[in-house]
């Protein structure tokens, strides 16, 4: 037999690797991926509420287009009040989305934002958004949902055109969702 550590010690070390890799897959990769997405705008994900203030850049304009998609099984009617706005970088603008629950039951919904092109996502800030919270509508109720946003002054010069899309999901049936970020924190 060759020298080195005992089989028992070796196996315990390998088992530690197994446990570490499992935890890596469940507790590290998802929040890490999420952070990467928010920093680099992968998948067009946007960050949480933006606190900063910017001065307006009058030298150029950017078209911001609005999309609304209902996920399968979502019965509400949902859409923006205008197809697009032309804005100056640094300027805070508002947009209203309208949602209507045509069913005879109260329903809750979650809107998920996504910005395209993805590399512009990191430069699109929402200071206020209906997507930060769940929306609950009573039967037949109709509401106006605001989003206030700033296109960053540092937006790459070759991007002239941004699209902000929302997908509306019906979350009535599910329990209050537990985001994986919170889960990971709980585990630490």
């Amino acid at each position: 037999m060759s020298e080195g550590i005992s089989t028992r010690a070796l196996v315990s070390r390998l088992l530690v690797v197994v446990v570490v890799m499992f935890c890596f897959g469940v507790f590290v990769l998802p929040p890490f991926y999420d952070a990467m997405c928010r920093v680099f705008g992968i998948n067009g994900k946007t960050a949480d509420a933006y606190q900063g203030v910017q001065t307006q850049d009058d030298s150029r304009q950017v078209r911001v287009q609005f999309l609304a998609t209902n996920a399968a099984g979502m019965l509400w009617s949902f859409g923006p009040t205008a197809d697009e706005l032309t804005v100056h970088p640094g300027e805070a603008r508002d947009m209203l989305f309208i949602a209507h629950n045509p069913t005879d039951q109260p329903m809750s919904a979650q809107a998920v934002p996504s910005v395209s092109p993805a590399r512009a996502a990191a430069f699109f800030h929402k200071t206020e958004c209906f997507c930060f919270t769940q929306q609950v509508l009573q039967p037949g109720e109709r509401i106006e949902m605001p989003v206030r946003f700033i296109v960053d002054r540092d937006l790459p010069k070759d991007v002239h055109h941004l699209t902000l899309g929302y997908t509306l999901f019906d979350i009535t049936a599910s329990k209050p969702p537990v985001a994986h970020v919170t889960l990971a924190r709980a585990a630490q």
Partner: peptide, 8 residues
């Protein structure tokens, strides 16, 4: 085409 996200 990914649910919840827009690709361009």
């Amino acid at each position: 085409a990914i649910p919840g996200f827009i690709n361009e």
